[in-house]
């Protein structure tokens, strides 16, 4: 894996010239929110590097909120800069679902193929980050084309894929190739891991969580369900939730629209039978899906520890408190 170094000043120039040709999206802070915005000359200086976590999950670039999946559309090449490791790891499950060979989702595939992902290390974590509790390191290790770290006005880039290699060729004459990652990076990474360990010291691990969720009957689900308003925000912000509904339009067109098992009648069948009739059934289903069913189906838990659902919950349900309680 080739590695390069470049000054921040030079890097900004590079981004400026690329953004004239290709759409680049990067996390930019607005008030208290950090989220992806398309780069322009005006906001390039405000990119938030190496900080958790963009409000919008990475999935929305490949699996948009709404998409006409019958009409043909041309996907343009684009760059996503600053994807955190948790969101990158979520692509494992999404790829298994949408790139499944038997039923290949070409809309998802085209977007994956046409997107260059520049992942980034997390040096500042947010209060609900808990990736390491689920065995994900807080820096890119998979599913990106290039990774980026910014320390003391120096940008370090590491190439992960052929696509990344090809992309970097556009401006490699402006970069300095290096043999090893600078030691500051290793130090920062260790610090982040340490912070996460302290922040989540009481959080059950994957195996404990699975056992807890599986054994819990209804009492704790009912307790938390009292605060749930079925808004579905937890699923919408979740980087691994993939549920959708096909909505029919004229001319046999179909809109693939994000959906959620937290909405009433998600599983309702004709004759009004509904396995998820109660809010507590749906709440339970969410955690079963993440920690029991997905591991059985795809060898992977469907929670990356990004913490977004905790932040997004209108009813102030803290998933980690809930998990700790079912594991007691």
């Amino acid at each position: 894996m080739r590695k390069y170094s470049v000054s921040l000043k030079q890097w900004v120039k590079i981004l400026n010239s690329i953004s004239a040709e290709i759409d680049i999206f990067a996390p930019i802070r607005k008030d208290e929110y950090l989220d992806y915005e398309q780069l322009t000359e005006d906001n390039i200086m405000s990119i938030s590097y190496n900080k958790a976590i963009p409000t919008t999950p990475l999935k929305s670039f490949f699996f948009p909120i709404k998409e006409n999946v019958v009409r043909e559309d041309e996907d343009k090449q684009r760059v996503i800069l600053g994807a955190p490791a948790c969101d990158l790891s979520a692509l494992n499950i999404l790829d298994k679902i949408f790139l499944d060979e038997q039923f290949l989702d070409t809309y998802y595939k085209d977007k994956r193929d046409n997107t260059i992902i520049i992942g980034s290390d997390c040096y500042e974590i947010s209060e609900n980050c808990h990736c390491t509790s689920y065995n994900i390191d807080p820096y890119p290790k998979e599913n990106c084309d290039i990774s980026l770290s910014l320390i003391d006005y120096k940008v370090t880039l590491q190439v992960f894929s052929k696509k990344g290699e090809k992309f970097i060729k556009r401006f490699s004459q402006e970069l300095k190739e290096i043999n090893k990652l600078p030691p500051e990076i290793q130090k920062k990474r260790e610090e982040t891991i340490e912070k996460l360990a302290i922040q989540n010291k009481d959080l059950p691990n994957i195996e404990e969580t699975r056992k807890g969720v599986e054994k819990e009957g209804t009492i704790i689900w009912k307790k938390y369900a009292e605060d749930c308003v079925s808004c579905g925000a937890c699923a919408l912000v979740c980087p691994t939730c993939h549920c959708f509904l096909l909505i029919d339009k004229e001319n046999f067109e179909k809109i693939k629209n994000w959906d959620s098992c937290q909405y009433p009648s998600f599983e309702k069948v004709a004759g009004d039978e509904d396995p998820l009739a109660h809010i507590y059934d749906r709440l339970k289903n969410r955690y079963l899906c993440k920690y029991v069913h997905k591991p059985d189906m795809y060898d992977e838990i469907a929670c990356t520890g990004c913490g977004r659902c905790i932040e997004a919950c209108i009813g102030k349900i803290n998933k980690n408190e809930l998990i700790a309680e079912v594991c007691e």
Partner: peptide
């Protein structure tokens, strides 16, 4: 088994029956 369905493709999640 009869469940709710949308995609038929193992992607949309609607037909889930305990995993």
């Amino acid at each position: 088994m009869e469940t709710n369905m949308s995609c038929g493709l193992g992607k949309c999640g609607h037909c889930d029956m305990d995993g």
